[in-house]
Design a protein around this nucleic acid. Structure first.
Lengths: 185, 185
DNA sequence: TATTGTTATACTCTATAACTATA
DNA sequence: TATAGTTATAGAGTATAACAATA
């Protein structure tokens, strides 16, 4: 099966991008590919079957994970969207009967977002499918390999998390034969 | 630093989801988190600085990778969007001066999409930044660890790729204390 | 004054269906 | 008939700015 090989990066990569690491590029490419495959399988299976957008799905997951009704601005923070976008998302979810808005008992500026019975049923049907997919996908790795994999991933994530805040490293310029343009050929 | 730990899954996970593997869930969670961090750093850095949507960015990447002008339906296939969506994307990119449509020399139904000088300059500025980020992120892993990581990722990806086509495993139902609803409390 | 949520407005991405031109 | 691309239309997600109600 030729499709079962890792993604490779060309020989001249480190010449084209001085200072960059070829093996690092291969790690990143294979990492993102595998993550995308996870998301694709889960999307096409449970999520799209339920007719939910990615944001709607995450909103339900946040509410389910919280274990109790929470206010829109809390969901918006976790979802990294504006409060106006949150209003729109909740409108959609409420229209579909998956959430309900209720007044906050103490603070009359706030509301609390509840999952409906239907939404909890949906989540209860989706999660076992998702975990069955994950369990099957990782099945060929030994426990020791899983441990090493998690450790390596955490090492990389830690560095990325540091970069999130601000300074990303400044690179040396690219060195290359420009691609054909159709104009200068 | 408490934030530098791997994502863990609760003790009762395998009781809650019979048949599912806790270590597999931890692998998946940490994998997706790390991939998302990669994408986030690249998005907030190079991509958003260039004012490009994810699809616009990918369109430029496809054109750059092709190394020569290609037809819209080819881009649409690789991007997994409809031809009408492709037209709209190209409208946006052309309005910004990043691509040009030219008639196909042989087949008058077709057009060819060219990158402009400005687009090639943009890509040439973005790629070194992206590879510098990747190189720095993976810096703490030895070459041996990179090799093992890529191998494990490929193993998982292969299984996921098999699942893409069709049959996802059927799970046993969830077993749980339902979360509070605000109604029945 | 600050916080919470909504409304108004606008733009992008996405899709389906109908259409034109060409092969 | 089949293929390539566009137009028309519609819906969702996103954002910013302005606003009302409440703290």
């Amino acid at each position: 099966m030729p499709g079962d090989d890792p993604i490779r990066v060309p020989d001249d990569f480190e010449h084209e991008f001085p200072g960059a690491s070829r093996s690092a590029a291969e790690v990143a490419a294979n990492l993102v590919r595998t993550s995308n495959a996870f998301v694709a399988v889960i999307d096409r299976g449970p999520r799209e079957r339920a007719g939910l957008s990615a944001s709607a799905f995450q909103t339900l997951a946040i509410l389910e994970g919280a274990g109790e009704p929470i206010a829109p601005h809390v969901i918006a923070e976790r979802l990294l969207v504006s409060s106006a976008s949150m209003t729109s998302l909740l409108d959609t979810l409420e229209r579909r009967g998956l959430v309900e808005r209720r007044p906050h008992p103490n603070d009359r500026r706030k509301i609390l977002v509840n999952l409906t019975e239907e939404a909890r049923d949906t989540v209860d049907q989706m999660l076992p499918v998702i975990h069955a997919v994950i369990t099957a996908a990782v099945n060929d790795l030994s426990e020791a390999e899983r441990g090493r994999l998690i450790k390596s991933l955490t090492t990389v994530w830690t560095r990325l998390d540091e970069m999130q805040g601000g300074s990303i490293p400044s690179p040396k310029p690219r060195r290359k034969h420009r691609p054909k343009t159709g104009r200068d050929s």
